[in-house]
Structure formats: structure tokens, C-alpha cells
Design a binder for these strands. Sequence first.
DNA 1: AGCCTCGTTGAGCGCACGGTCAACACGGAG
DNA 2: CTCCGTGTTGACCGTGCGCTCAACGAGGCT
Lengths: 202, 202
Amino acid sequence: MPGRKASEEQRKREILDAAFQVAQRQGLHHFAVRDVAARAGLSTGLVFFHFKTKDDLLLALLDWLLETTAVLRLSPEIEAIASPLERLLALLRQETERLTREPGRIRLFFEFWLLGLRNRAVRGRIRAELARYRAAFRPIAESVLAAEPERFSTVTPEGLASVAVAFIKGCAVQSVIDERFDIEAFRHAADALVAQLEAATA
Amino acid sequence: MPGRKASEEQRKREILDAAFQVAQRQGLHHFAVRDVAARAGLSTGLVFFHFKTKDDLLLALLDWLLETTAVLRLSPEIEAIASPLERLLALLRQETERLTREPGRIRLFFEFWLLGLRNRAVRGRIRAELARYRAAFRPIAESVLAAEPERFSTVTPEGLASVAVAFIKGCAVQSVIDERFDIEAFRHAADALVAQLEAATA
DNA sequence: AGCCTCGTTGAGCGCACGGTCAACACGGAG
DNA sequence: CTCCGTGTTGACCGTGCGCTCAACGAGGCT
């Protein structure tokens, strides 16, 4: 008897924990509410009592993932770095390291990303997350563009920020599906390109 | 009566055409063999007669997608370009343009990519496709590294090629889910970075 | 004690879908 | 014409899953 009359918030956490484990093991494609309940040691009806529908549960899981995953958010330490280019390098290192440390969370993010193609609510959250991500690169982009305004006249800060995001997401696309993908080599190459930027802004 | 006793190859093409349409409309998540048969105007049993199982049908669809999609293959015209950096620009332009012209195929590729996380046969094909893709950038990467060997001593051609692939895939990750994503701005920013490379190799 | 609220249960309904199969139709070989 | 192989059909089965619901039980309030 795994506890009766638990508080609502506590129960929801238990269920979300179980949902996260099920989603990681089976993927969203084979994500079944029954399995979540079983893993949490609860009845299926109770899960539907707290989350009215499967879609609601998935949305709550996505919100929880985005809130608790530092992967896609900026840590305070990195936000404190003043130099834009050093922030760029720190972000790049943080994200590429997490690809090997927490592949499950990244995979789950991409599962939701794909789900967002067909589900409006999910799509909105993924879009917001990517926009937040790009916003973190805006200071870097602006300082780069300010260094050579005539050469980069047609380049927008948002465009440059989206390139930076593409670096990381594109690395994930390759590494998530291929454990032999050499992330270290990718990181070195990216560092070299940043060095090019430094030469241009200096 | 949509034709009886068609040749095996012809029937398979009809079924694959229908499968492609169903996959594009419903996504692989809701891909049902029944729907494929209905769209092709055939019975469900016949689909299973030509493709023993749903997985077989999906694999055949993936093979067909990779063969017929120039998105992920190099067109002969681009292969003919001698200058590595111009090839890079041509590839970049071709791929970013296709993101707006054929979003369905790119979406389907990513659906298979995700399916590959849990299906070994699919994973093998996706890995091979990404490897082929990186191989196309090897000449560019090698010429860049040869220009400044001491600065890029720790950078491998494969690593630099994977960065190039990340450019494109990372752009797709953002644009596929957000029709307001400004691909033109991304292209301009990427062009500017290539210009930096040119300055370094010159 | 009596009762009301509400967290909790698990059997069960309805449906969608993968896969099967007995029957059938058509064409060609003998 | 008969017979056989093969393309073709669609009803059907089994299963898995989203979701419901009647029933239960543990506090708390009067």
C-alpha cells in the first residue's frame, strides 16, 4: 500500500517521476499511462484523476522537463560571464558535455520536438524554448556584428544566434543516434571557428 | 476495381506512394497499414502480402525516401564544383532552400531519425546517411585545415565536417517546427562565417 | 455516531490496429 | 476444359490502450 491520501502536489510529483522513467525507456511512441501507474505503484484511474488526459500528462511532463533541465537553460554561472565570446565557448562546452552525460533528457526533448509537429500545445512550448535558447546568444551575435558593420550589413543578430543554436542542435542530431560520433572532435572544430570569430572582432 | 494482377514491382510502387502520403499526413506515430491500403485503393491483406510486416514496409519507405531525396544526397552539379568553399556555399544554399520547398520530406527524415533510436535497422540506415553527408564535406574541411596547420593542430577533418552537417541539421531543427523561423537570416549569417573561413585560408 | 468529501481502486468498455486466413479470381500450362 | 499458382479480398482475431465508473475507505465536521 504505497500511501493513501497523499497531498496533490506530492502525488503529481510521484506520477511525473514515473512518467519520466517510462518516457525514457519506451519513448513517447510507446508511452502508456498504464505503465506510468504501474511504475509509480498506483492504479491507472488515479493517474487520470490527477491528470485528466494522457495529453495533459505529457504536457506536464514536458513542462517539468524544460524546467528541470539545465541543458536547455542557462546556468547562473554562465550568465555571469561578461565576455560574449567566452560565454559562447562556455555554452558550447556545457551543451556538448551534457550530450554524453544526459543523453536521455536530450532524446526526450527531441521526442517532444517531433510531437510538436502534430500537437499545437507542445509546439508552442518547443518554439518558446528554442527562442529562449537563441536569446542567450544575442549578446554574442551583436558584439560580433558590431565589430565589422560594413561586412555584416545583411546579417541580423537573430540570424547569427540561430546559427549558434544550430551548432548545438546539429551536434545532438548526429551524436544522439550514433554513439561512435566523436563529440570531442566536433568541439575542437567548433572552438576553431570561434577563434576565427575572435580574430575578426579583435 | 483498381486493377488486378499487377506486376509485383508496380504494386510495390503504388503501395510505397500511398505509404509516403500517409506518413506525411499522419506522421509515423499514427502510421497505420490500413490507411496505406485505403489510400492505394487496395485491401489491407494485399499490403501484407507484398510487405510481410509493418516494419518491412517502413524500412522500404525509408530506403525509397533516402534514394529519391536529393536533399540528403549531393547533386551532380554540386559535385562538379571544384572550389571547396564554393561547394560549401552551394550545399548550404541547396539545403536551406529545400527546407522551405520540401518540408514534408525533411520532417519524415526526422521521424525516421527518431524511430532509429529504438529500431536497429532504421538506426543503421540513418547513421549511414549522416556519414555519407559528412563525407561530402571532407574536401572542404581538409583544405581549411591545410591552410593553417599549426592553429588547427587538434582539429580533425571529420570533426570539421560534422560541424558543417550540424549547420544544416540544426537549421532544420529550428525551421521545421517554426514556420516563422527566418531561414534567410540564417543563410546570411552562415555565409558570413564562411567568409571568415575564406579570410583564414587565403 | 452519522455523513460528506475526496483520494483511490481495478474491472471493464470501446476502439484502433497488426496480422491471419479461408475463399476467390484470373491467367497460363497441360 | 481442368487444374494450379499467384494476386487479391475483407471479415475476423487478439491485443493494447485511453478512459470511465461504480464502489470503497479514510479523515474531518457536526
